[in-house]
Amino acid sequence: MIEATALTKRYGPKTAVEDLSFTVKPGVVTGFLGPNGAGKSTTMRMLLGLDAPTSGRAVVNGRSYADHPAPLHEVGAMLEARAIHTGRTAFNHLLALAATTGIPRSRVEEVIELVGLREVAKKRAGGFSLGMGQRLGIASALLGDPATLILDEPVNGLDPEGIRWIRDLLKSLAAEGRTVFVSSHLMSEMALTAEHLIIVGRGRLIADTSVEEFIREASNNTVRVRTPDAGKLREQIAGPDVTITSDEAGVLTVTGLSSEQIGRTAHEHGVALYELANQQASLEEAFMELTRDVVEYQAVPSASRPNVTEGNAA
């Protein structure tokens, strides 16, 4: 169980995480989703006590991480940036971590076997591929057989087989009743792995929802309308919860109204429709839509609206 309460982190003038509250429950994989620079890694570092929150509180299994007498047994973590000395072998890396809490050598061998690194365990980690490095990170997270796992972008740089392996592993860990909190900037990946989603953008919470719900909402709220009378239709269907955009003349993209509602309104006002279609917005599009809203919500002047992925120069 992970509980973040009003977590805020500022680096100088830059706010990386702002007033972020959420709970991660055991038994399911919870995806922590957001574009690059959204504050996912920062949040995870705060959960692990590596970065001190500017304000707010992070609690893992009932205490702040640093207050656990046997942290590796409580929380297994894999951080985004590789946390491995390049000059040390995978085996010695794990052995040194294990020693801090008296985990025996046999367990080190066990996790090496488990992540499939036996062949290279006695090689220096500096020569590891990205995928091998991720596997070593997972091995160190599993060392203490922890009830909670925090993994930052574990599928980054993996081949399809590796991605599949991690996906199955995370699900089985959750099925055993563990808390599994895994970040990603890829909606498509989280849709396959996670059951629950915590979505952030620019350091703020955007959504805290089940994947099922997210998909349901994402897939049927956009309608494409082609009409010779776009201006008139636009006036008639406009409303507080309705967003209308137009990328080409005579075509409107409407969110907030069903195709039935639009069709009826058009009929009532004598507007001819050439095309009226529900758009199956892809998950990725829905996700981008959500995170773009956040940028606007932050009221950055549109002329200098920063790129979401960069987000620094603001």
Binding site: A70, N92, A96, T100, T101, G102, R107, G144
Partner: peptide, 30 residues
């Protein structure tokens, strides 16, 4: 579960002697 520790592994606390051992392993392995 395959990922669980084989036996009920002792849930050791972090102690100064254990950290010392860890640092010794790090020192001798570079």
């Amino acid at each position: 579960a395959p990922v669980s520790a084989a036996a009920t592994a002792p849930r050791g606390k972090v102690t100064q002697p254990r950290v010392l051992k860890s640092e010794w392993i790090k020192f001798r392995s570079l």
